[in-house]
Design a protein around this nucleic acid. Structure first.
Length: 106
DNA sequence: CTTCTGACTGGGA
DNA sequence: GTCCCAGCCAGAA
C-alpha cells in the first residue's frame, strides 16, 4: 500500500477528462520534485491490466506536450485518439497545448 | 548487497 | 523550432 506506483495511479485518476498532465508534474506531487518523472513513466509502463481501465494513463504526456509512449500496445496514435475523443486539441505537430489542457492539480 | 533499465527533464548545439 | 547528451529516482533481477 502507498507504494510509489499506487500513488502514481491515484494521481493520474484525479486528472479530469479533457485535461492532460505531465510526468514531471505527477512526480512533483508525489516526491515534491520533477526528478522522479522517469519512475512515473515506468510506473505507467508497468500498469497492471486491472488498473488500465481505471487509470487514464493516456492523459499523461511529457513536458514537451507530446506523447512519449514506447509501448507498442499503447501506441502514441491510440493515446492521441483517446485524448482527442475527450476534447483535447492536438496541433499539426501532434502536440498539445499544456497551457490550456495542462492540469495543474485542480 | 550491486547493476540495469525506463512512457522523463533540462540545457546546449 | 528540433535534435543530442548527461543526470536522477524507483523497482526488478
Amino acid at each position: 500500500m502507498s507504494s510509489f506506483f499506487d500513488r502514481v495511479y491515484e494521481v493520474v485518476c484525479r486528472v479530469p477528462p479533457g485535461r492532460v498532465t505531465t510526468y514531471g508534474d505527477v512526480s512533483r506531487v508525489l516526491t515534491g520534485t520533477a526528478r522522479s518523472a522517469r519512475s512515473v513513466g515506468w510506473a505507467l509502463h508497468g500498469l497492471p491490466p486491472d488498473r488500465v481501465d481505471e487509470v487514464p494513463w493516456w492523459r499523461v504526456i511529457n513536458s514537451k506536450g507530446r506523447v512519449s509512449t514506447s509501448c507498442q500496445e499503447h501506441s502514441a496514435s491510440e493515446q492521441q485518439a483517446r485524448l482527442m475523443d475527450e476534447g483535447v486539441e492536438f496541433g499539426l505537430d501532434d502536440r498539445v497545448d499544456l497551457d490550456r489542457f495542462g492540469w495543474d492539480g485542480e
